[in-house]
Design a protein around this nucleic acid. Structure first.
Length: 202
DNA sequence: CAAACGATTTTCT
DNA sequence: GAAAATCGTTTGG
């Protein structure tokens, strides 16, 4: 399967990238076990003009530093002291854009995922949510700043291309504090896919 | 140096 | 439907 090249991420169009990521495959190889899944839900965090973005107004801190790197690296961070959220940094260095992966449809390494999630059987809750899929794939803050061209976490072309009218746009989750920017349709998912997170319906 | 809080999920009422 | 869990980062003294 073909690995997504660096220049896919460095384009100056985070919204387009967020949409195109749907249907692509995310792969992790940890503890010698390969796990993968199809991306079915994403959210765009479009840089300094986006109030919901951590790096709003070019706010450069220790935590947001990876977003200022060149596109194509991972930005993982801990939320509520419990969950790890996995983001993909986009655009070029100096432009703090990122796409949050919210849900995947599991493909390979199912047993390892179940083990990590402490579940005994497959259910739609396995990877439906940003904190959950990170846990299932074994992604932690130790992987932040990691290049997606490496041998630990990377993305591949999917088998199926998602037609434009199968992409649903909606408002983002958990960003009410962002005022008007919370209303932007920056959340994308595959229409009718049962693995899409149901935390808050579209 | 100390205190408050968050791009979430689970569990209990 | 509401509240707790839990800790690194951010902000204020």
């Amino acid at each position: 399967m073909k690995v997504i090249p660096q220049n896919f991420y460095t384009r100056n169009d985070t919204i387009a990238i967020a949409k195109e990521l749907l249907g692509k495959v995310i792969v992790t190889e940890l503890d010698g076990v390969r796990c993968s899944g199809i991306i079915v839900e994403t959210e765009a965090y479009a840089g300094p003009e986006d109030r919901a973005c951590h790096a709003f107004g070019f706010k450069h801190t220790t935590r947001t530093a990876p977003m200022f790197l060149d596109g194509g690296v991972a930005y993982v961070y801990l939320i509520y002291g419990i969950y790890h959220l996995f983001n993909i940094v986009t655009n070029v260095a100096g432009q703090p854009h990122a796409v949050l992966i919210r849900a995947i449809e599991p493909l390979e390494g199912l047993e390892q995922m179940l083990l990590r999630r402490k579940l005994s059987s497959i259910s739609p809750r396995l990877c439906a949510g940003p904190g959950l899929l990170s846990q299932a794939l074994g992604i932690t803050t130790a992987h932040t700043r990691l290049s997606l061209q490496g041998a630990t976490i990377w993305l591949e072309e999917g088998k199926t291309k998602i037609p434009n009218n199968d992409i649903v746009a909606g408002t983002r989750v958990g960003v009410a504090y962002a005022g008007n920017d919370a209303l932007l349709p920056y959340r994308f998912s595959i229409k009718g896919n049962k693995w899409v997170s149901k935390a808050k319906g579209l």
